[in-house]
Amino acid sequence: MKDSVTITIPSHPGYLSMVRDVTARFGEIHNLSEAVIADLKLGVDEACSNVIKYAYRGATEGEIVITLRIMGKDLEVIIEDEGVRADPACIEGRNLDDVRPGGLGLHLIKRAFHVYEFDEGRRSGNRLRLVRHLR
């Protein structure tokens, strides 16, 4: 069995629930705990929401490709889009003590994943790699 799943969704917020469902089911198949699955669902959802907001700037006709796979003792998620390039140096969450709307999504992604890195060699769009160490 090839331990990976790839789904492609339109850059429309209505499809985020589908991403969460697939992420949760993938976690269940691989016997991950409910707590870990909850973290992963939220982290992947937040990363895809960021693609819709920042890469596609709310346009709903873009495409987001999400791949989940087991790599030894890690779960890796790759999220690819053809939207506006992200500048990793400019991406930061707000200070959690500074209570205001927004700026929380990145914290929730980093809460779920130990590795958060953009493929800076990509010519167009974005390729975000997320890794959760499972043991």
């Binding site: 969460r20 669902k41 939220l42 959802d45 937040e46 929401s49 209570v99 205001r100 709307p101 927004g102 929380l104 999504g105 929730l108």
Partner: peptide, 13 residues
């Protein structure tokens, strides 16, 4: 059953 950062931002606002 679920809330993300956009929901939380809504309540902060």
């Amino acid at each position: 059953s679920y809330i993300d950062s956009s929901g939380i931002a809504t309540f902060v606002e």
